[in-house]
Design a protein around this nucleic acid. Structure first.
Length: 732
DNA sequence: AAAAAAT
């Protein structure tokens, strides 16, 4: 059972409804609702009974959430007060609620949260706003799931669904009376950009408002320096400003985008992280950006040593002699402390410095003796050194950093710091939520065996549970970057005591889109803290972080564990594009568990649908699904209720599912590292696995080159639907 | 293109 389920079960009280009137018919004295022999026979209500009753008793009473005081309900009769019951039935209503994100209403009450007033405005950070809003993207989240249509438990919670058109206006509703009035509430740095918001239809008409038409243009306003700087002014939150209607209209000001943005103002030296980086739109986009070496150093990155342009060769510059030379240098560094599998033979956990309790736990988890990568890295981690660890997919990296990390926290703590609200002392970052949760499943029992606590801090899931766990006190945080940043900014996660930081899939965490958040997070951790970087494809791409944050790291990898010695059979099928669907159907129809990789979410979803239509139970995993569905769909494959999962690269790295016998790459990867990670989902723990990559003939050359980089020997052959090659592969 | 925060 996934541990986050454990937590859900052990943690906070669940919402209780129906706490009001006792039900009649209790059988014994002393129970509420006991009527003795006089108890009236239970009668089912007919439609007519119900209709007759609704006049004096609002039907929705019983569904009153317990936070809504009954006494404050409007006194108006039901007929005047539209209730939930008057809303159209589900099927009649328009398909709202596409996004299914936790709504405002699910979040902790405002008053429980710290003021947001003094944190930097959201617009200063590169945001996810750059990608199309969820509602603009095809959403697969709320469709009835393939094969699961019977259950409506998954539909969005009531409060998440819109269609509130006929509800009383916000201010008239009693339930929100106790929340601060708008002007008292903290600033919503995260609200949509002005230009995205609807017009201010409800503010006073212009003629009634003081006109600012004559006001000098923005640029003529008092120069910035004379005004309080947003950065260092003392908690002058937006709370202090006058209520909206009292404020001057901004209608005449230039549109926001024309005004000097926060991003333009000089960097705040006091608060280097979370604020100084350039706005995303100012940064070159991925497509346009020059090769790494040509990019100017990021403006906020002054501490980083200036990059030597030769040191980071362009990605595809294989023919350059200097590249080869440098790569050798880097590889040499990385291989400096290679150990062979033989070196680990006969080593015990105790030999490596792992204590008895943890050893018992590790043994119980099936890790009776250390794997080579664990034998290699654990002593150095325990000695407090920064470590780079490279072990092939499925070689046991999680325990390689997890076990010594827990051991170090133990030693460092001396059993003293178990106070509620203690700050976390270790942080493990992963690129996907599923991976973070999987790591927690491994690390949590190890930590618990010595009385330490972990929590996952990932997005896509309500914050509340995470925050209250943090408040209770946690020693190890296992997280994805976005939510960590969010909570840090909210002041609800303090990383200043983090003495060990692990980057799992470290090379990926250095890719565009991850690197800068990771840098900001690392900046929040304790100065001089230990850093551990692990990946199956650890390469020079991590040099940026290594130079910036690591001190004399020791580098470990395990020799003799290259792809050649792996248990994976690599096949490439040259196919006609139009045959792809058919061939995938034939391949996926086999007995064993099959994981199919598609390049886009839409294609992943389409393929899953297609397989279902062809009578092959399949499910999907990609970023267009809400988190509960992602978790569940992955669970469907793990549990074996479904044998085929179609995923984007969200599932490429780190995800462990037992006994995947076939990996199909419906779209070939662009990067050899992606190939290695995808194929690493099979052939785990010494088992046999097959990877089939479908390509068009036009891609043959690129594929050859990619396989060369991955150091993989694959059989490449043409194939068409119905060919025996395909059925042979499918049967495996 | 995907992923990582919501609204």
């Amino acid at each position: 059972m996934p541990n986050f389920d454990n937590k859900a079960a052990s943690g906070r009280p669940t919402k209780k409804y129906n706490t009001g009137a006792p039900k009649t018919g209790s059988r014994s004295e002393g129970h509420r609702g006991f009527h003795g022999d006089a108890a009236p026979a239970k009668k089912r209500w007919t439609q007519d009974d119900r209709a007759a009753r609704t006049g004096d008793r609002p039907a929705s009473t019983d569904r009153r959430p317990n936070w809504e005081p009954r006494a404050e309900r409007p006194t108006t009769g039901r007929s005047e007060r539209p209730s939930y019951g008057d809303r159209a039935q589900r099927t009649e209503r328009p398909a709202y609620g596409r996004t299914e994100r936790p709504s405002y209403n699910d979040r902790p009450a405002r008053t429980e949260r710290p003021s947001y007033g003094d944190r930097p405005a959201r617009t200063e950070r590169p945001s996810y706003n750059d990608r199309p809003a969820r509602t603009e993207r095809p959403s697969y989240g709320d469709r009835p799931q393939r094969g699961e249509r019977s259950s409506y438990n998954d539909r969005p919670a009531r409060t998440e669904r819109p269609s509130y058109g006929d509800r009383p206006a916000r201010t008239e509703r009693p339930s929100y009376n106790d929340r601060p009035a708008r002007t008292e509430r903290p600033s919503y740095g995260d609200r949509p950009q002005r230009s995205e918001r609807p017009a201010y239809g409800d503010r006073p008409a212009r003629a009634e408002r003081p006109s600012y038409g004559d006001r000098p243009a923005t640029n003529d306003r008092a120069p910035r320096t004379e005004r309080p700087s947003y950065g260092d002014r003392p908690a002058r939150s937006y709370d202090d400003r006058p209520a909206r209607t009292e404020r001057p209209s901004y209608g005449d000001r230039p549109a926001r985008t024309e005004r000097p943005s926060y991003g333009d103002r000089p960097a705040r030296t006091e608060r280097p992280s979370f604020s100084d980086r350039p706005a995303r739109t100012e940064r070159p986009s991925y497509g346009d950006r020059p090769a790494r070496t040509e990019r100017p150093a990021r403006s906020f990155d002054d501490r980083a040593p200036r990059r030597d342009s030769d040191y980071y060769p362009a990605k595809h510059d294989t023919k350059s002699a200097s590249f080869a030379a440098h790569e050798d240098v880097v590889l040499e560094r990385l291989e400096a402390k290679t150990i062979t599998a033989d070196d680990a033979v006969g080593k015990t956990w105790k030999d490596l410095g792992i204590g008895d309790n943890m050893t018992r736990q590790l043994t119980a988890m099936g890790a009776e003796t250390p794997f080579p990568i664990q034998a290699a890295t654990i002593p150095d981690v325990l000695s407090g050194k920064d470590v780079l660890g490279r072990g092939k997919t499925g070689s046991g990296k999680t325990i390689a950093f997890g076990a010594p990390l827990v051991e170090r926290l133990m030693e460092n703590e001396g059993g003293k710091n178990r106070k509620p609200g203690r700050k976390p002392r270790a942080l493990i970052l992963a690129p996907t939520r599923e991976l973070a949760m999987q790591i927690d499943r491994t690390v949590q029992p190890i930590a618990r065996s010595v009385g330490l606590f972990t929590t996952t801090i990932v997005g896509g899931v309500p914050q509340f549970k995470q925050v209250s766990t943090l408040q209770r006190g946690v020693d190890i945080v296992i997280a994805t970057p976005g939510r960590v940043e969010d909570l840090v900014e909210q002041g609800r996660l303090d990383l200043s005591e983090v003495m060990i930081t692990v980057l799992d899939e470290a090379d990926h965490m250095c890719d565009l889109g991850f690197l800068e958040p990771v840098q900001r997070i690392l900046d929040e951790t304790k100065k001089g803290g230990q850093k551990l970087l692990f990946s199956a494809t650890l390469d020079k791409g991590v040099a940026t972080l290594v130079n910036q944050y690591l001190k004399n790291p020791s580098v470990h990898e395990v020799a003799g564990e290259d792809q050649a010695s792996s248990t994976i059979d690599h096949r490439v099928l040259l196919i006609e594009q139009r045959d792809k669907g058919r061939i995938i159907e034939e391949l996926a129809g086999g007995e064993g568990k099959t994981l199919i990789f598609a390049r886009t979410r839409a294609f992943a979803e389409q393929l899953a649908d297609q397989l279902e239509d062809a009578g092959i139970p399949a499910t999907s995993l990609h970023g267009d699904l809400n988190q509960s569905r992602r978790t569940r769909n992955l669970q469907l494959l793990t549990s074996g209720r479904v044998n085929v999962l179609v995923a984007t690269d969200v599932a490429a790295r780190g995800i462990h599912v037992d006994d995947i016998s076939l990996v199909i790459q419906a779209d070939a990867p662009d990067e050899y590292k992606t190939y290695l990670h995808r194929s690493g989902r099979t052939g785990r723990a010494g088992k046999q696995g097959t990877v089939v990559t479908l390509i068009s003939r036009a891609r043959r050359r690129r594929m050859d080159e990619l396989l060369g980089r991955a150091e993989i020997k694959a059989q490449i052959e043409p194939a068409a639907p119905g060919d025996s090659v395909i059925s042979t592969l499918a049967a495996l």
